[in-house]
Simulated assay, not measured.
Amino acid sequence: MGEIFELGMVICFGISWPLSVYKSYKARTTLGKSLIFELFIWIGYVSAITGKLTTQNITYVFFFYILNIVMVSIDICLYFRNRRLDRLAGRIS
């Protein structure tokens, strides 16, 4: 039963990441984004994945952790692309 609730949490979080990646890609700016926030989320997913691996509790939920960390990683990469674009546009120093 606990796995079902864990899956629900991971899926709900996971739905938001493709939307965030799309918004970051289209916006071409870091304004309104927080790198620290995304890094904490990334660390949280690393912790969850490590927990699953160390307890050898690899279930279907594990796939969603991997999918989510990939999405967060893409969003972090877009942050750095957008930061460079902000500098070129003179929006930040």
Rank of each mutant, 00 (worst) to 15 (best):
I4Y: 07
F5E: 14
G8P: 10
G8D: 04
M9K: 15
I11A: 06
C12I: 09
W17D: 06
P18S: 00
P18E: 05
S20R: 13
K23Q: 15
S24G: 10
S24R: 04
Y25A: 11
K26Q: 12
K26T: 13
A27E: 13
A27C: 10
R28I: 08
T30I: 13
L31T: 13
G32K: 03
G32A: 11
S34M: 04
S34L: 12
S34Q: 09
E38C: 09
L39F: 02
I41G: 01
I41T: 01
I43E: 06
I43G: 04
Y45H: 09
Y45N: 05
A48L: 12
I49P: 04
I49R: 03
G51V: 01
K52V: 08
K52N: 13
K52C: 14
L53D: 03
T54S: 12
Q56K: 10
Q56Y: 11
N57M: 04
I58S: 04
I58E: 00
T59E: 01
Y60L: 04
F62V: 00
F62R: 00
Y65M: 06
Y65F: 12
I66V: 03
N68L: 02
N68W: 05
N68M: 06
N68T: 07
I69Y: 09
V70S: 13
V70I: 15
V72A: 07
S73M: 02
S73K: 00
S73T: 11
D75R: 08
D75L: 13
I76M: 08
C77H: 09
Y79T: 08
Y79K: 11
Y79Q: 07
R81K: 15
N82T: 11
N82D: 14
R83W: 12
D86A: 06
D86M: 00
A89Q: 14
A89N: 10
G90H: 03
